[in-house]
Design a protein around this nucleic acid. Structure first.
Lengths: 167, 167
DNA sequence: CCGAGATAAATGCATTTGCATGTTATGCAA
DNA sequence: TTGCATAACATGCAAATGCATTTATCTCGG
């Protein structure tokens, strides 16, 4: 601030970056950046609990989806967890090996594998959910219930919008 | 729905999950899930443009931060990009090799490495920013400017809240 | 019923990632 | 100044990841 332009007069749009004809770019108003930052923090917090139980975040994501939606095909889990298909295939193999999930060929479609939580997997998940919800509440501290509902709906709208842009 | 409880009478809270004394868990109202879904979609959309330029998302994150905030130490970049330190160290080495950034020892602190965009890196960034902003607008389609500001401020508040929970 | 094309998983392989540790440089107290 | 704790990076190594491809199965028109 050189003492210029303090009266609030119009500024050239791309002054901050100072680079040819690139539009101004403010990270603090850039949705992907804000999403990534917030998401990574949440992950970081919860990871401690996961590590303590010898679990990884991708494992937890799978468990949460299976808990909430029940038996799923691998391909459906890719959509719900945002984990790539081959990665998920191998992840589920190790989770199976650890007794967290079971995998069974679909009787009516021999291509598909149906994944479900084992009893042990359910127990672990039931143990983690309260912690996850507690973290969620802590992180939402200061937000009203209405604000939170609004936030959720905005995130869903963004997700839906971006679905159209995918292919 | 067996035709029971249709009158809207009170339901036991944890009926959905059907598991002992675990609180109800609805993914569609679970912030980490919604954040991850939205974030992953944005990544997915933009990744196409990155691949076309032989870049990765972590590279873009670094470039965006350097563009916006100028010369940074590696340790500062870890905070801004949510990329782990050793990963970042190696990523910057390859970005240096490709002429995207330059790395120089800090004169006043011989431990630190100062990273900055090269001319080539700036050009690529300047090329990508308009695309990133266009995607952002597309994904925010249907949201008012006020709603977007509100969303941003909520994400920042969540980020700040979670800072306190980190250690 | 057959065969081409599509779908769901699994696998090969090179790259990336993250934890633990090593290396060099600072800061600071005694 | 020396010595020691700390900070910033780099690196070794095992594990995770993603792309491309393969394998098995299903669909459907002919």
């Amino acid at each position: 601030m050189d003492g210029l332009n303090e009266g609030g007069g119009p500024l050239r749009a791309d002054e901050t970056a100072g680079e040819e004809t690139c539009p101004p770019f403010d990270l603090n108003r850039f949705l992907p950046y804000l999403l990534n930052r917030a998401g990574s923090r949440l992950v970081e917090i919860f990871s401690e609990e996961l590590r303590r139980r010898n679990l990884t975040l991708p494992m937890w994501r799978v468990m949460a989806v299976l808990w909430h939606k029940g038996e799923q095909r691998i391909i459906d889990l890719t959509g719900e967890t945002s984990i790539e298909q081959s990665t998920l295939s191998r992840l589920l193999a190790t989770m199976d090996g650890r007794g967290l999930v079971s995998r069974n060929r679909n009787r009516s479609d021999g291509r598909a594998v149906l994944v479900t939580l084992t009893t042990g997997g359910k127990e672990l998940t039931a143990q983690l959910i309260p912690i996850a919800l507690r973290n969620e509440r802590a992180v939402q501290n200061g937000l009203t219930a209405e604000e939170i509902r609004f936030l959720h709906s905005m995130l869903r709208r963004i997700f839906d919008n971006s679905a159209d842009l995918k292919p």
